[in-house]
Design a protein around this nucleic acid. Sequence first.
DNA 1: AACTATTTTTAGACCTATCTAAATTATTTA
DNA 2: TAAATAATTTAGATAGGTCTAAAAATAGTT
Lengths: 219, 219
Amino acid sequence: MNSFTAENYLKAIYKLVEHSSNPVSTNSIAEKMNTKAASVTDMLKKLANKKLINYQKYQGVYLTTKGEKVALSVIRKHRLWEMFLLEKLDFKWDEVHDVAEQLEHINSEKLISQIDKFLNYPKFDPHGDPIPDANGKIQQQKSNSVSHYKKNDALIMTGVVDHSAVFLQYLDKSGLALGNEIRIKEVIEFDKSLKITINKKNTLFISNEVAKNILAITR
Amino acid sequence: MNSFTAENYLKAIYKLVEHSSNPVSTNSIAEKMNTKAASVTDMLKKLANKKLINYQKYQGVYLTTKGEKVALSVIRKHRLWEMFLLEKLDFKWDEVHDVAEQLEHINSEKLISQIDKFLNYPKFDPHGDPIPDANGKIQQQKSNSVSHYKKNDALIMTGVVDHSAVFLQYLDKSGLALGNEIRIKEVIEFDKSLKITINKKNTLFISNEVAKNILAITR
DNA sequence: AACTATTTTTAGACCTATCTAAATTATTTA
DNA sequence: TAAATAATTTAGATAGGTCTAAAAATAGTT
């Protein structure tokens, strides 16, 4: 079993490598983990001993297949718990992260698979980030803001950028929720505002400002 | 903040003192915690420094008000999580404990109060043990098996003794569930079997064997 | 009361995770 | 390319939690 700390290091490395795809530097890990470079070096040696990362002195690190599996499992748990807190326990968006940071380390296959089922197997978390499945597979398609798409595109709403209460209340009032199907019926050239339908039923006009703050993928 | 380990010690001491009400011995703690007496002594000093227990060398320990508050909070969380796993996530009775052991250490006021609400503020866990409220108050009345009560008593079912699948299926089939009102209509002297009503509606005959395995309090 | 057995505590070690300060290696830059 | 700067690693400490073996205190028994 890996310690909470080890899991957090692996998660941090995963996220750092995700964008750059180069080996990750000791300093960047230290920054992300809010710790000192010396502590990172110590931990890297331990993780390397467990074959969770590939590590060569002064050369940075990347995850092994084994390490990536652990990282993806932690990320899966984190994102499912966030979803659960938000959807089932009436948490606010900004309250979700800290608790999920704790819950992501709970060790129980059954627990997480049941939470997944309880939520009806969501593919994206409330921030629009993909949720890895039980095998660590992640939906490749990345979310974009609705303003990025064009006329006649059929989308699935996966998240939001702005998490303020006013914005979320507006979404609520307009009947826009995670998982909804959004079709772009018209793009007004003048101000880039959109005419859309929600779940093939309700029609709605949204400003470009709103469109920029809603995340979606093509369905 | 107290460590998981410290919380577990406090919980163990609470449970040991609950029955005997005398100071708790180092050895009994060691046994309950599956550790060695020397380790217990070390920890007792730390807990005493934090004013969580009263400790005098060789004289055993008991909880301070502060320590008891922590213990009750951990027990509350444990029992609520057990309830949640059982009722909402389709866990089996025997799968519940180990996961609750982990979840009981998650630190979030809001999380546990929302779980409490989600479960509709249960007063007893599935084993018939009382669930402390947010202030650490516990329902004083202890659960007894139904066979312990007499004619015309009005009860609330709080738990079961036997957790086997056959028994639980029988309860299910008979419409007996946690929180139900049970009224004892008749006690057959010959074999101590009972005629009861469930929620003032359905009538049911149960053997003494069954009655012994159902826990309840008077309402 | 004195001796024995049991319980509890101390002493000394170890492991994990962290830190500061110093040493080493890599990278820039003049 | 040699000196200066930045990044990384090592060395040595500290803190939490655990252990074994030995010492001290308490409880039991004759």
